[in-house]
Amino acid sequence: MKFDSLVAFVQMDGQGLYVWAAYGITCLLLAMNLWIPAIRQLRFIRRHKRDAQSAQDRQE
């Protein structure tokens, strides 16, 4: 462990803002790359289910 306290860890000798901003943006962008295909696939499945449901309703 290179830090003595939590405050030191957050501040990083005054460079914390840069470090945390870079890590935050990385986290956000990487998460987005998982989120986008996942949500699109979910939407695709949902839409299909709805279509199938309405086709069934019409038949009945």
Partner: peptide, 15 residues
């Protein structure tokens, strides 16, 4: 947490 800080750049090397 564990990587060392750079003697010139300090903690920003973590980027």
């Amino acid at each position: 947490l564990f990587a060392p800080a750079d003697y010139q750049q300090g903690h920003s090397v973590r980027i």
